[in-house]
Design a protein around this nucleic acid. Sequence first.
DNA 1: TGCCGATATATCAGCTCGATATAACAGAAA
DNA 2: TTTCTGTTATATCGAGCTGATATATCGGCA
Lengths: 218, 218
Amino acid sequence: MAAGSNSLELVVLGLLKEQDMHGYELKKRMTESLGLIMHVSWGSLYPALARLEAKGAVKAVEARLAAPSVPMTGSLGGERAVFRSSSDGLRGSRNKKVYGITDLGSALFSEMLNNDSEIDEKGFAVRLAFANHMDSKMRLKMLNERRDLILERVKSSRRNIEKKRFALEPYVELVLEHFRSTNSSDLAWIEELIAKEESSIQNSGTDLLVSQKIKDSI
Amino acid sequence: MAAGSNSLELVVLGLLKEQDMHGYELKKRMTESLGLIMHVSWGSLYPALARLEAKGAVKAVEARLAAPSVPMTGSLGGERAVFRSSSDGLRGSRNKKVYGITDLGSALFSEMLNNDSEIDEKGFAVRLAFANHMDSKMRLKMLNERRDLILERVKSSRRNIEKKRFALEPYVELVLEHFRSTNSSDLAWIEELIAKEESSIQNSGTDLLVSQKIKDSI
DNA sequence: TGCCGATATATCAGCTCGATATAACAGAAA
DNA sequence: TTTCTGTTATATCGAGCTGATATATCGGCA
């Protein structure tokens, strides 16, 4: 019922905030620009869109007529085909269904972005990727929560290992050591971000990374 | 039907190879020693055990009578209670069901460990954690596959970003940069492991990390 | 004695993955 | 022209995972 920490819906809304898109385009965009961060399958993308549509967060809109997908040749047949077999009047050529974000969807996006916590690795990365839609205070809060979580995780692991009621197999120790090292550099990175964020708050309220144009839509 | 890359079953079998355990104990052990690497919930652990039991890879055994869970006080009531309400004769005190690995389970473990590929981050870490049950050649193969996969992923991301048919939001670039850096250190780590493995193969067939005792059970 | 926290198993709805099916269309080849 | 192949596009399925919750049992303690 509650939003939960659904990073997929967050990403979909975040991308639709930039531009109307259909499912295939969304997935392409995700794997192209966020491919290192997350991965999405058809089996979760289309149900997610259906969910968001049912909630009223997105709605089908008329297909954009501008440059469908690198047409190369200028045959204008596409434009005519857009309004072909439209049972609902909104299916474009190739049966495309283009989605746009609604005001409710925008509100939901902000809510998920700002109010979700207890998020995992992927959820954090996704939230941070859209952090230009937060204000400085919120970014700082998120970064601090993440720092504490990693810190606690590493400490807990160290505590458990040092109890050593069992013999660790040699490769387990190898892997753990690497994970600890990864966590350390994650930690250093986050603390760097926190420092930047704090200094940018002190130097008047101007954000370093957020342009004024985007800021007003927070 | 085929094994697929089920890292949970692999871990369960790997841990049961060391010692008979019941579900609760398995989870505790996992979060304590492998907590940084993976996480398991009740909703997946018990069904996994049931699956493995159905396959004949594990089977319920008599509860071990030695030190149930740090008893502290030497009240010997526990031992008597072990054979209490046994509808199947194998339920210990507190309704415990202790599992042991079968020969078939051992074979399945080796099969999953050696034949799975196309595995994700977590799957790789888990496999590596049990790499002392592989031979040098297999370890090398796994490490090489992983290196190629990461390499390809990073290159693919770079290719897609450089096409830049869309403007990346500032924080997305920030996150991507960090992920690339993480991938780089993962890569360096893996190449280090490969180098070690190769040199250990050259220096006669002796493995550096695998003790002779474990080796014979490969 | 009653209460609390740890032990122990189990189940549920909702979500995700990987695979697969289906179809429209574009461009090249035949 | 027709056929063939690859890309675009949506949809669905089984099976597995997660977080939450339910239900007991037992040890220690006041």
